[in-house]
Amino acid sequence: SPTVSMDELEHLAQNISKSHMETCQYLQEELQQSTWQTFLQDEVECYQSKPKEVMWQLCAVKITEAIQYVVEFAKRIDGFMELCQNDQIVLLKAGSLEVVFIRMCRAFDTQNNTVYFDGKYAGPEVFKVLGCDDLITSAYDFAKSMCSLHLSEDELALFSAFILLSSDRSWLQEKSKVEKLQQKTQLALQHMLQKHQRGEEILTKLICKVSTLRGLCSRHTETLSAFRAVYPDIVRAHFPPLYKELFG
């Protein structure tokens, strides 16, 4: 592992936390104030009675909005913009949705298994018409398990950066440069967890999430291609261009 001073780790942790807070889309206070606002039964039914393709499009728009914040987050991480453009794109293509899934736990209410979506808190039944119950259930389960770790915003920020800077993504041109950045981020995360007197097992649990996140994202890709096979024109004409670039 690279030799990094404590000062450097502190500095990186501060930079990543600040970047996260500046780009987190919703402040914790906003989200907490809305938890009592869950969709009423007739509103749930309204989502359920939308045509499948309309609901898909709405979700694609929401995912794209969230991803734009993740792109901003990446740009503010020290060292990210110093990577070659190919690698910036490779990392965002592979990791931006993973960070959206991580961020989902901030907007998740474990008490009633709902997530902030389209202005209120929504249970998994809201997404029924999408026809991908497995993916939705897995995303909710993932958010729930992330919540059970009770990470602070700083820890969440560092974990998000650690995921974004994954050096094992295919097609990286300067793999070792990414590797060094990721290692430094991991050290900063470790340092932060120690400082917060969290047990060693938290880091192990977080590292285990890497494969869960990859599974979630590949399931999203599979679900999208199944949808696209039936509705190619809808995707072509109505899905956000950034979404198509990332997942096309």
Binding site: V71, E72, M81, I89, K93, P241, E245, L246
Partner: peptide
Amino acid sequence: KEKHKILHQLLQNSTS
């Protein structure tokens, strides 16, 4: 580059 036009653009926009 053409394939990731929007991502390129987002990366090039200065952070606000």
